[in-house]
Design a protein around this nucleic acid. Structure first.
Lengths: 257, 257
DNA sequence: AACAATTTTTTCGTATTGTGATAATTTTGC
DNA sequence: GCAAAATTATCACAATACGAAAAAATTGTT
């Protein structure tokens, strides 16, 4: 873990992504990163004057407006999200009302929702909230990615949390897990119910970029309407969306101007 | 403009906030930043492996998932947004339906919407889109910040775009501008109509942090319902919201644990 | 208003490493 | 398969990032 000064700066910024801690003082960050106080002050100043963090009161720093600005650009300009929009809307139009469509991405050994589409805005129990990393073993949108990962990687993740894999019905040992992953891969789309919260059911298909899996597209239905009939009729719809995304992503790679 | 390596890295990342260019190749960034190609490659690699940018196809880089992750944390954890939520909702409840409430922040000599609240989701002509910097001279949410800036700063901005100041009725020369800013400051909230797009009208009040202006809260109404009566009756509501925000921000500064 | 306690900035010498130029390597498009 | 582009590796040197400690500025309290 040889680290240069830019990587340290980004690591400091990443502190602010921490799930349970949203604000940092210089001292806290200093001890957490193992950097001297004076240097940490220099980092804070650099990030603050560029707008990435901001002192909402003396000594307490939180994320700054530059993040919002970049997020807007990503929302507007990201090629994958752009390609997904129409596909997700079409998929959504065939689903029961109160369903939502989500686009997830494999990121840092986890799965993160990067875009959602819904017919009408309404509060739903958030299963995959945009921007919140989720583990690979829980929920359809995650499992379909896990199942399409190279076996070596899947195994590494299994070794890291075997109990969780068992808890979410992926198997108690590697042989079982390997078998259930193969089983999941053999289906056009995979279905789970109540794995994230208790009120939602998911139907997911993988998205590829040439060889390796990039992410997944999913429909999330209220579990009350997710009967066997409904989900099995939607399975080919979601599977088609995944394939369409895959071909669009490969198309994109050609069109570079 | 002495710049260290971390500042250069952030300047590279900020390229991706550019309004008309969402993707960069190493060469383009290299010439744009005036950095050697080899070093630009190193910067790209650093940003990419931390997830801040991502190559969606060989040689073309766009913003990466880490941005989404940080934006979520900001949405959830930002103290100013947190304080504003209930105030904005209450303000919204007294406004005509199809109105929205926005929270803006003074940032880099511009004004940026950092949060919006609405009763029901619906497509409206976006006047202040979240994350898009807007000039100080255009629209109520901007003008109220401009009017409460130190005169020296206001004058600097005026000198930078005097024609724009005139176009948006702030005056043709500094004496006139100074007078109209004083006039704006004297009102509890300020009202504009049709300055951003033609279909919206804005009512805005400033938010202070101790001495200097931090941002503004605003109601944005469909121009069709924004009659003289309606807006003048809402003016005190918005003004009160601004004052409440100001006192909440000052309260926050005390509560540091 | 004066004081103590933080927070932030400077100074400074040294070792670290960031840097550009060039070459080597890998990946990609045809 | 080959040509072209993209990416990484090598290297030598100057630039600067770094920690420690002191100075300055800001803040909270009496």
């Amino acid at each position: 873990m040889k680290e240069n000064s830019q990587e340290r700066l980004l690591r400091l910024l990443s502190l602010f992504a921490d799930e349970e801690k949203g604000e940092w003082s210089v001292d806290e960050a200093s001890v957490h990163l193992g950097i001297s106080a004076s240097q940490t002050y220099r980092y804070f100043r650099t990030l603050a004057s560029a707008g990435y963090i901001s002192a909402y009161t003396t000594g307490r720093y939180v994320l700054g407006p530059a993040i919002i600005e970049l997020d807007r650009k990503l929302r507007i300009g990201d090629p994958m999200i752009h390609a997904a929009r129409s596909i997700m809307r079409e998929m959504l139009s065939t689903a029961p009302s109160a369903s939502i469509a989500i686009l997830c991405r494999y990121f840092r050994g986890q799965v993160m929702c990067v875009h959602e589409e819904f017919e009408t805005y309404q509060h739903h129990e958030i299963s995959y909230e945009r921007g919140q990393p989720r583990p690979l073993y829980q929920g359809a949108a995650s499992k379909v990615i896990l199942a399409n990962l190279p076996l070596r990687q899947a195994r590494a993740y299994f070794n890291h949390a075997p109990d969780k894999f068992n808890q979410f019905d992926l198997g108690a040992n590697w042989t079982e897990v390997k078998r259930s992953l193969r089983e999941l891969r053999s289906q056009p789309a995979i279905i789970t119910a109540g794995e994230l919260g208790t009120s939602a059911s998911g139907i997911s298909a993988p998205i590829y970029d040439d060889k390796r899996v990039l992410g997944s597209v999913s429909l999330v239905l209220p579990i009350t309407v997710a009967t066997e009939e409904v989900t099995s009729s939607l399975m080919p719809v979601v599977a088609a969306a995944g394939q369409e995304m895959t071909s669009k992503m490969q198309h994109l790679a050609q069109l570079q101007q």
